[in-house]
């Protein structure tokens, strides 16, 4: 009979019953996934939540984040040292520099280029601006300026407007820009292009042209000196003006004592004569009785 009580303990290759059971338990897929995957996930999730939910810890983390951010912003490689403006007139540059609104040196990371561009483009004289960080650590702003195309009179004030009708600046006196036509009337700034075309066609009488008046926000009147006025139709005013000019070429119409040339009805141009012309005309044909005015 074998010894029922073991005399000495030798290492037994057999797993103990507990180890055997644990090994078998470990082979259950749900337990294995629970221990290897879900338990760590839960521990990490809960502990992370517990740490983050404390306001003190939150404040410290925010502080640390801000410190890191500030140290990055303070890098000299990222600092912008100055401003370079290209394009546009010299008179505009100080206004743009003012509109940029940041004090140099400033970190390029802290600068919102889109906001700077929006601020610059808010200046009415600037048609388009490009803002970028240049290679020599300067803020490069390239400008396309609005070109004044006409003078708009509104009330008693004169303004410069560009081809799109955008007001650029006030003008002190008309004589400062004699080459630009003067526009007036309600809604004139919305039809600057049309007015410019009319002015171009009216080049033969440019010396006499004083300005264009928008009538009833609908059509143009050409105002000449000597108190003459050409009323142009709503549609195709250029053609009507050409006809007037052709008349003028042939008959020197505008040199005569005529108050108004009414071209509003293209089939029936109407002239309004001046008082001298009326007087000269009246003896030629005796007025019928009772119609003398």
């Amino acid at each position: 009979m074998r010894a029922l009580i073991p005399l000495r303990r030798r290492r037994d290759p057999a797993p103990s019953r507990l180890r055997y059971r644990l090994a078998r338990l470990w082979l259950r897929p749900w337990l294995r996934s629970a221990v290897t995957l879900w338990l760590p996930v839960a521990v990490i999730g809960v502990s992370g939540w517990a740490v983050l939910s404390q306001p003190l810890m939150m404040g410290r983390m925010r502080q640390a984040f801000d410190d890191i951010r500030a140290s990055i912003l303070a890098q000299p490689e990222l600092m912008l040292q100055g401003l370079a403006i290209t394009g546009g007139s010299q008179a505009l540059h100080p206004r743009i520099a003012e509109a940029v609104g940041v004090g140099f040196p400033v970190s390029s990371l802290a600068l919102d280029l889109d906001a700077v561009r929006a601020r610059i483009e808010a200046i009415s004289a600037v048609a388009e601006a490009r803002v970028s960080v240049g290679p020599d650590r300067r803020l490069v702003i390239s400008i396309r300026e609005r070109e004044p195309a006409a003078i708009l009179r509104r009330g008693g004030t004169l303004y410069l407007v560009d081809r799109d009708g955008v007001l650029i600046a006030q003008l002190a006196q008309r004589a400062a820009r004699p080459e630009l036509p003067v526009l007036a009337g309600e809604g004139a700034e919305d039809h600057v292009r049309e007015a410019l075309r009319i002015v171009q066609v009216a080049r033969p009488i440019a010396g006499r042209l004083r300005g264009l008046v928008r009538v009833g926000a609908r059509r143009w009147d050409l105002v000449l000196n000597r108190d003459q006025r050409i009323q142009l139709p709503e549609d195709d005013p250029v053609l009507a003006l050409r006809r007037v000019l052709a008349f003028n070429e042939a008959e020197h119409l505008l040199d005569r004592d005529i108050r108004r040339i009414d071209m509003r009805d293209r089939t029936r141009p109407v002239l309004q004569l001046g008082p001298d012309a009326l007087r000269a005309l009246r003896p030629a044909e005796p007025a019928p009785e009772g119609e003398e005015t």
Binding site: P13, A14, P15, R17, R19, Y20, A23, R24, L27, R28
Partner: peptide
Amino acid sequence: VRTVLSRAQKHAGER
């Protein structure tokens, strides 16, 4: 039997 079963299960990776 425990020895052989635990080894075989470990080899198989299945219970």
